[in-house]
Simulated scan of single mutants.
Amino acid sequence: MSQEPKSVWYTRCPAPTPLSIAAQLGWVDEAFGTRSVAVASIRDSKDPAVRQSHFTHALDWSFRQGGNIPPIWARSGGRETRIVGITTTDEFQAVISLPTTGIKTAKDLKGRKVGVPRQAGGIVDFQRATALKGIVSALSLEGLTAGDVEIVYLDAREPALLEIGNATFLGLKRRYPYGGELLALARGEIDAFFVKGAEGLVLANQIGATIVSEFGFHPDARIRINNGTPRPLTVDAKFADERPDLVAELVATVDRVGAWAEAHPEDTVRFIAREIGVAEEAIWAANGTNVHRHLKLTLEDEQIDALSHFKDFLLEWGFIPADFDVAAWVDPRALDAARRSEAA
């Protein structure tokens, strides 16, 4: 007899995802509420062990959509999970500098100092991996490699999210990224660093940065693949195997967002801006004027290939402990069921 969970856990990153919009619309609570199953937020928990599952995917009866590095790392380490959908929402990605450095293109980075954030701890350092992939992509467009620049690691000066929990920052929900890199750039300790998304675009605008290389919308998926592109929806194997009906309900609920977003572009951008904590104009600028058309849940070969390529990058750079087959990680049952239901 299948187990009936009293509650399920979920987590999402501050990013454009259909799960985020479904949650804000109340659809996720409603879908599970009809089964008398409560939905609890991992990130909002007061228990550090629970919050850790945002990165480790350790909790049974849990689902997640956001950056792909933590779930790739967890799967590589042996945690049995399933990809039940993928969303590809491209975003601004760039290596930036200050006009005073004289760096204008990626070619000018040769022999210069490029800053990369570094966080201590046993959980995958997704910010370091994200920055390194962005830098490698920018350099590759000019025939350069990471060996052509001096990587300067910038150690974090404050505890990670798991340690501080829901601490507020001057009334805000979280610390915005790139503070350490900006200070190092201003001090002349580095010459350039990588930024992405709406937060990165706002920072670049604020300091009048030189855009050394911009590639978030590059036609080659292997160039633009990074932590945020694409974003998988994952569930733990216990959830997928013991209650495929509940997973199908989850996927169908999140899948509805694609059509809703296309019909409500202004509301969609408002929800994304609220999730990230930026102005709506920053979303339009960073994600493009068609961002509302790129919130579908799919399982396309190109998306799976992109994740596999990024997994290979993480393995090459030592961010994950072991190789694995990304295609075998994908479980299409729930999305197939949602499509059949849609057609009917």
Score class of each variant (00 low, 15 high):
residue 201 L to I: 07
residue 233 L to S: 08
residue 102 G to W: 08
residue 102 G to Q: 06
residue 177 P to Q: 03
residue 239 F to A: 06
residue 66 G to Q: 04
residue 285 A to Q: 11
residue 309 H to R: 08
residue 219 P to F: 05
residue 56 T to E: 12
residue 268 T to N: 00
residue 343 A to W: 13
residue 234 T to M: 14
residue 97 S to C: 11
residue 332 P to R: 09
residue 9 W to P: 02
residue 185 L to T: 05
residue 205 N to G: 06
residue 86 I to M: 01
residue 96 I to G: 04
residue 54 H to G: 10
residue 193 F to H: 05
residue 321 P to A: 07
residue 39 V to P: 06
residue 205 N to W: 09
residue 4 E to A: 01
residue 221 A to C: 00
residue 150 E to Y: 14
residue 152 V to S: 05
residue 296 K to N: 02
residue 176 Y to E: 01
residue 150 E to R: 06
residue 228 G to E: 14
residue 210 T to A: 10
residue 234 T to E: 04
residue 81 T to C: 09
residue 275 E to C: 06
residue 104 K to T: 08
residue 131 A to G: 02
residue 143 G to V: 12
residue 1 M to E: 07
residue 257 V to N: 07
residue 253 T to S: 13
residue 305 D to A: 15
residue 304 I to K: 04
residue 279 A to D: 12
residue 131 A to R: 04
residue 174 R to T: 12
residue 25 L to A: 03
residue 278 V to D: 03
residue 314 L to G: 01
residue 317 W to A: 03
residue 178 Y to L: 12
residue 276 I to M: 07
residue 150 E to V: 01
residue 91 E to A: 04
residue 301 D to K: 13
residue 342 E to Y: 10
residue 266 E to V: 10
residue 341 S to V: 11
residue 27 W to T: 03
residue 125 D to F: 14
residue 211 I to S: 07
residue 344 A to V: 11
residue 54 H to R: 05
residue 261 A to H: 00
residue 262 E to I: 03
residue 333 R to D: 08
residue 306 A to D: 06
residue 273 A to H: 07
residue 178 Y to S: 03
residue 335 L to C: 02
residue 66 G to N: 08
residue 228 G to N: 15
residue 149 V to Q: 04
residue 136 V to L: 10
residue 192 A to G: 04
residue 156 A to E: 14
residue 128 R to E: 05
residue 186 A to C: 13
residue 334 A to I: 01
residue 184 A to D: 15
residue 313 F to Y: 11
residue 324 F to Y: 07
residue 107 K to E: 15
residue 50 V to D: 09
residue 73 W to T: 03
residue 52 Q to F: 04
residue 80 E to R: 15
residue 80 E to H: 10
residue 248 A to H: 03
residue 66 G to S: 13
residue 78 G to E: 11
residue 58 A to K: 14
residue 155 D to E: 10
residue 296 K to H: 13
residue 36 S to F: 14
residue 50 V to N: 09
residue 124 V to C: 02
residue 26 G to F: 02
residue 89 T to S: 11
residue 254 V to N: 00
residue 39 V to Q: 12
residue 245 D to L: 12
residue 206 Q to G: 02
residue 81 T to Q: 14
residue 120 A to K: 14
residue 240 A to V: 13
residue 1 M to Q: 05
